[in-house]
Design a protein around this nucleic acid. Structure first.
Lengths: 200, 200
DNA sequence: GTCTATAGCAAGATAGAC
DNA sequence: GTCTATCTTGCTATAGAC
């Protein structure tokens, strides 16, 4: 038996019932549907059907459709934050760090599945719960990029918020034109950073 | 009386009944609602109410909700194309032309009302009719920027599609963070173009 | 934990009076 | 051209059997 050590990694993880085994599948199905059709156009029947159950059964796992959206958002932000922080680990040089973060952001957004796309595209105007609960978490994520841009060696006259907004806008918009099999996320990120550095 | 000259400007304009006077108001209301709440979450009753009529009455003007969305898109693309072409008129110098187009695009998107926002954000995954009918028109609009980027004096090694995608992505994404009263669209466009030119 | 069954409601759309 | 009234369908969510 493992002694009750003070856990530093792996936070307590909200205690749910012993075997809420279908919850991840429901969340996956929801993320996929929300991505493809949007939140409003997706029905609980759609999601339940994808997970192999009937609509009524979902309410054992999630109390409402809105809670489902919040859960997808939480998971999406968790994944994208983790990916970016891991990509930054050990990288030195301000431009190199910005490029690493951009590449990781893009990789999760374009190849990392449905959660991140929902976070980026399904804006919180859908739900008041989303705004209240998740706006701070989103802001915390954007702060990573704010700090990376602050570290760049730019002239004092260059408005740094333009750099951040331009890069994040270009990255986030990419999910509208990207098609799997095209240019790799790392290549796109490298290209965008090169342009920002004025190399052309 | 005007003789039936072969019209070159002002295309025939789909003949509707003599006094379809409420149609513009309905279209305005729809654009506003689609922008704020999204297409799926907006009901015909919402739109009709905003225009001061009941839901059933709308069907005298538009045969379906989807037709309403298509009409909003058409009008939005028309406005944004017109604004950019007018902004380009008489401007010389490849970077100056790109900046003028970017500023006009941004001005319509941020201060120009609801139509353009719907065009940009309410992507055609909503409706098969949108994809078929309007994808070519959207592509034609993007071609304006493709040509402007082709005219830039860049080294042969610079991938020009990165320039176009980065700029349009940054511009289109701006409607997620822009707040009226902040930096003017022209200033944002100028800042983005300066970054692309490598001036920092 | 999933099912059947259904309550309760709002949606898009139509018919016909005025 | 707008109204009233309504049809039909689909939705979220709940209750209770198994």
């Amino acid at each position: 038996m493992t002694a009750p050590v003070p856990a530093t990694t792996e936070p307590p993880a909200p205690r749910r019932s012993r075997r809420d085994s279908r919850r991840p599948q429901l969340l996956d199905a929801a993320a996929r549907r929300f991505r493809r059709g949007g939140y409003s156009a997706t029905s609980m029947r759609d999601i339940a059907g994808d997970a192999g159950m009937l609509a009524g059964s979902m309410y054992h796992h999630f109390p409402s459709k809105e809670d489902l959206l919040v859960a997808v958002h939480e998971e999406g932000i968790r994944r994208i934050t983790k990916a970016v922080e891991e990509a930054l680990d050990g990288v030195r040089g301000p431009w190199q760090r910005l490029e690493a973060a951009a590449a990781a952001h893009l990789a999760v957004l374009l190849d990392g599945g449905d959660y991140a796309v929902v976070v980026i595209r399904e804006l919180p105007h859908e739900s008041a719960a989303l705004r209240r609960t998740l706006a701070p978490v989103r802001d915390a994520y954007e702060d990573i990029f704010r700090r990376l841009v602050d570290d760049l060696p730019l002239s004092a006259a260059t408005p740094r918020h333009h750099v951040r907004l331009m890069l994040l806008g270009a990255l986030n918009w990419s999910q509208t034109w990207y098609r799997p099999g095209g240019e790799a996320p790392e290549a796109i990120a490298r290209g965008f950073i090169r342009l920002l550095r004025g190399e052309h």
